[in-house]
Design a protein around this nucleic acid. Structure first.
Lengths: 228, 228
DNA sequence: GGTCACCTCGCTATTTATGGGGAGTGTAAA
DNA sequence: TTTACACTCCCCATAAATAGCGAGGTGACC
């Protein structure tokens, strides 16, 4: 695991190819998921499959992406919900493009609501795959962790996030708004006038460069400034 | 690491005490953090310190909690920002109550915006602590992972979360609202009338049991239903 | 001792969101 | 095939948020 020494984005691609060989699996993939689709992805899938995946918006219906969202521990693909018609079609398409019939995906969550997946996929029977998971689970978890650390390091957007810290009152305000209070209720809870409250919302909105209250709350949640 | 076999909440307390001895550190703590303060916590700190921590709202100013929020990899306490007056006072208070002068905290994030910390703390010089981190980092990461998995298993609130899945249009609506669009802009983006859009917002709000749009967006973000 | 950020309060007008009703289409699962 | 549910559109009245103005007191840091 000399991953820790790699330093550039292109290195990650090389490393993941080496890892695939070390673990003796057909494919190994890391991809970072957000609203705009994959933000960063490296892996050993065929380029045609990756392109097809993006073009067809498979990320919106891929049971792996959806299922892992609700999980914390590594997820064996066979325990996901493949029952819907769209899911089965996707599965057939994937296998036809060289993706293994077996897979293990590890959800990874970082600061600012980051969500990524680290996946190993292979073509084999259930028993063989179960043995593989049993043997390699811990190493794969660590690998996913270190891979994501590298991805975060390489992420260019982190400069802007350092921006303006919010004051305690602003954070309280956004937190209460996030749990559904309206401005009058928040003002009452904080024992201040609604006018004062509005100043906090406005200044928080300004600091977060948010377009409205909902955006400010969403941004604060996304950056991990508040928790609900 | 027979943690994987433990099954009850009370077991976790026993396990963490054993782990403290295995790793030869003064303290080891796991705590799950949210807006209402700690939701679940086990560890080896003195009960007086835990009570004091909660009573004084230290969770709002603890540099460990705040600093780890922005990080993914394990964080050595000495690299956190202890410069503010409140932070330094907190640090003195903590050390006076038996918390070590050294510490390593691992941020853990799970589904539905879960945020937890796994911490090892000790009283020793910098060099000794650096060696400890170097040797045990990987094991501690795995330990944090498995500990959180157990905590999630024991969490009673998970039933209600399975509730109503949102439709694609509802998810698109909430996503666009979360990135700051107002209803008119969202409607235009989705090429539907603003009236129709309102139906989505309303039904999403209903499904999420949210009190208003901001709450619905916050809840969806929190549950990991949308990503921005 | 001055500066700066934070906290607090006030006004008016305009824009935007919410609540509650009804109604027709299509696709997909049972 | 029938039953769902998602998707689309419309009206009206009220509640809430936003934009723009201003102003004084407190505490921390240099």
């Amino acid at each position: 695991m000399a991953l820790e020494t790699s330093s550039a984005l292109s290195d990650l691609q090389t490393v993941i190819e080496q890892l695939r060989d070390v673990f003796h699996v057909d494919h190994m993939v890391y991809h970072w998921v957000n609203a705009k689709g994959a933000r960063l992805g490296v892996g050993t899938y065929a380029p045609e499959w990756v392109q097809r995946y993006v073009e067809r918006g498979y990320i919106r219906l891929d049971p792996v992406v959806i299922g892992c969202f609700q999980k914390f521990h590594p997820v064996d693909w066979k325990f996901l919900d493949w029952s819907s018609k769209a899911s089965r079609e996707f599965q057939h398409d994937a296998i036809a493009h060289g993706v293994g019939n077996q897979g293990l995906s590890i959800p990874i969550r970082g600061p600012h609501g980051q969500y990524a997946l680290f996946t190993a996929s292979h073509n084999c029977d259930d028993a063989t795959w179960a043995d593989f998971i049993e043997d390699q689970r811990r190493d794969l978890i660590l690998l996913a962790h270190y891979f994501n650390e590298k991805a975060l390091d390489l992420e260019p957007d982190k400069i802007q996030d350092a921006a303006q810290p919010l004051s305690p009152r602003e954070l309280e305000t956004l937190t209460l708004l996030a749990i559904g209070y309206n401005r009058a209720q928040v003002a009452q809870t904080l024992s201040i006038s609604e006018h004062t409250l509005r100043v906090y919302v406005e200044s928080a909105r300004f600091k977060l460069s948010a377009l409205n209250t909902t955006h400010a709350v969403a941004t604060a949640l996304n950056r991990g400034l508040i928790v609900i």
